[in-house]
């Protein structure tokens, strides 16, 4: 008889975790020869928790927070990030990136990609990208648009339009990273990356964008653990109670519908079970799925790792000798 499976929050000691991550973050920043940390904060749980750990590690005077809003996300995120900065007592600077993205053609190229699918699309319409339900097989992406009268329509993304849309919207993460490294150069600080374990492991980041950083303090934490850490740090309730979003498209979009296919709570449990070799039949009741569905989820975890290996890969270099 097998014992009841555990989960990422069973026995998780958030206070001890914060202490350990703060020590390691301070050591890493010093080891890199940098004098502090730059953290871009979106008002989301991950960047807020990472910022809180940096302040604990280095003190608020050695942490520079950046707020980098753009047109599609609106001001609410920046307002939350300002509330975070006030709670942490750290300096926060707002630098909207909309003009830079306009100059680079981000919105124009994005709109062209959307018109491949909806020829009558107008930039004033809201939109988002969604995936098909998990199946351990083929995943199909669709574009959802909302017309000014509130009606929504969903159509499958052709491959070329899908790639063009992602290439255009990935500029947002890459321009943010450019601003972060500009501040890091100016202050001799390290850039802090804010992916959690699910995002890091499953390749849910933009190469050279949010995937680029000098230290990634929470890349080993499950999402539920990030929330526990944020609450333990005493971060504003408006942040710790907020639903995660991708901050990329103009219609509200969860990570579940765009990438993971499950709520983060369920994805946490599935990843934990996968990593601990839990038999799908044993995990099924705990996550409220059938054993077969858990098996499908495990297969997707493996497949996504393989598919996103390129995102983690460093540049390939050669020696002049054979």
């Amino acid at each position: 008889m097998s014992s009841a499976p555990s989960g990422p929050l069973d026995g998780f000691d958030a206070a001890a975790c914060i202490d350990r991550l703060a020590v390691e973050t301070a050591r890493a920043v010093r080891g890199l020869g940098r004098r502090g940390a730059v953290v871009a904060t979106s008002g989301g749980i991950d960047s807020s928790a990472a910022a809180g750990i940096c302040v604990r590690a280095l003190g608020p005077e050695r942490v520079r927070l950046l707020r980098l809003p753009e047109r599609d996300v609106g001001d609410a995120s920046s307002d939350l990030a300002l509330e975070l900065a006030q709670a942490l007592g750290a300096d926060s600077i707002e630098e909207p990136i909309t003009a830079a993205l306009e100059g680079l053609g981000c919105y124009e190229q994005r709109d062209e990609a959307i018109r491949e699918v909806f020829p009558d699309y107008e930039p004033s319409w809201k939109h988002k990208l969604v995936r098909s339900a998990p199946s351990a097989s083929i995943t199909v992406f669709s574009l959802v648009v909302e017309r000014p009268d509130g009606t929504r329509e969903q159509r499958r993304m052709p491959a070329e339009a899908y790639l063009s849309l992602l290439a255009a919207t990935n500029m947002k993460q890459r321009v943010r990273k450019l601003r972060e490294y500009t501040w890091a150069d100016r202050l001799s600080y390290a850039v802090i990356g804010t992916p959690n374990l699910l995002e890091y492991d499953q390749g849910f980041f933009v190469k050279g964008g949010d995937g680029l950083a000098d230290v990634k303090p929470i890349a080993g934490l499950y999402k539920g653990q990030v929330y526990a850490v944020a609450r333990e740090l005493g971060l504003p309730e408006a942040i710790t109670s907020r639903q995660p979003t991708t901050e990329t498209f103009s219609l509200p979009q969860t990570q579940e519908e765009f990438y993971f296919g499950y709520s983060y709570e369920r994805m946490d449990e599935l990843m934990w079970g996968h990593e601990h070799g839990t038999d799908p039949a044993d995990l099924a009741a705990r996550v409220g799925m059938s054993a077969e569905e858990v098996g499908v989820a495990y297969a997707e975890i493996d497949r996504r790792r393989t598919a996103t290996a390129y995102l983690h890969a460093p540049a390939v270099v050669f020696s002049p000798e054979s």
């Binding site: 083929i138 199909v140 992406f141 993304m157 491959a159 899908y162 598919a307």
Partner: peptide, 14 residues
């Protein structure tokens, strides 16, 4: 094609 890693999801759309 999928199990052998020849075609990924986007490839199937193509």
């Amino acid at each position: 094609l999928l199990a052998a890693g020849i075609v990924d999801s986007l490839g199937f759309v193509e």
